[in-house]
């Protein structure tokens, strides 16, 4: 704030004053439900997950094998050319251990999250997933990991058809 200005607007409140109704408020909970279409490329990707395989798309101009797959190459700005399977193994690009849930509340056993660069895709082509069967303190950068799939009858065609990746 400028040294020339002496007073600043704003009436601070404590969160408790709001919770306990000491300040008049209006409450509203939107009813917002959605059905997100996976679209052309991701529908095929999800259908392949159901089969226990990971599929990518390739752009013949730049040669990139891209996962998640997409119908267009955002760098060459042209349609992608082929489908190609990549492996369900990869290396940990980066990771974190989360002690909080979506609503900022605390969870006891941390969720290990990572970006996994998949084998068979172009370098640096990672997907986001969880890491399991290891203590979070043992996880390392560049560690080799492999997908742990749900049994076929439990797969739904969702990213969660892979339970997590575990160290090889």
């Amino acid at each position: 704030m400028s040294a020339k200005i002496k007073k600043y607007a704003g009436h601070p409140l404590k969160s408790a004053e709001i919770r306990e109704g000491k300040v008049p408020t209006a409450r509203w909970r939107p009813k917002a439900k959605y059905m997100w279409s996976a679209g052309v490329a991701m529908s095929r990707f999800l259908n392949e997950l159901k089969n226990g395989r990971i599929i990518a798309t390739r752009c013949n101009k730049c040669g990139r094998i891209m996962v998640p797959p997409r119908v267009f190459c955002e760098q060459c700005f042209k349609p992608t050319d082929n489908w190609t399977y990549v492996k369900d193994t990869g290396t940990i690009n980066t990771y974190s251990a989360s002690f909080i849930a979506g609503d900022a509340s605390r969870i006891k056993e941390p969720i290990i999250v990572a970006i996994i660069d998949l084998d068979g895709a172009s370098p640096g082509m990672g997907i986001q997933h969880k890491i399991g069967e290891i203590n979070w303190k043992e996880v390392k950068f560049d560690m080799k990991v492999k997908a742990v799939w749900k049994p076929p009858e439990e797969r739904k065609g969702a990213i969660t058809d892979i339970k997590y990746f575990k160290p090889v």
């Binding site: 959605y34 997100w36 996976a38 991701m42 999800l46 998640p68 690009n93 980066t94 990771y95 974190s96 989360s98 909080i100 849930a101 979506g102 969720i111 999250v113 990572a114 970006i115 997907i127 986001q128 997933h129 969880k130 969702a158 990213i159 969660t160």
Partner: peptide
Amino acid sequence: PIMSRPLGTTLIWIFALEMHR
């Protein structure tokens, strides 16, 4: 909604991944 949300992704996860990298 297809790749990230089903995993329960939160904002701090993604920044933690960046910071760690």
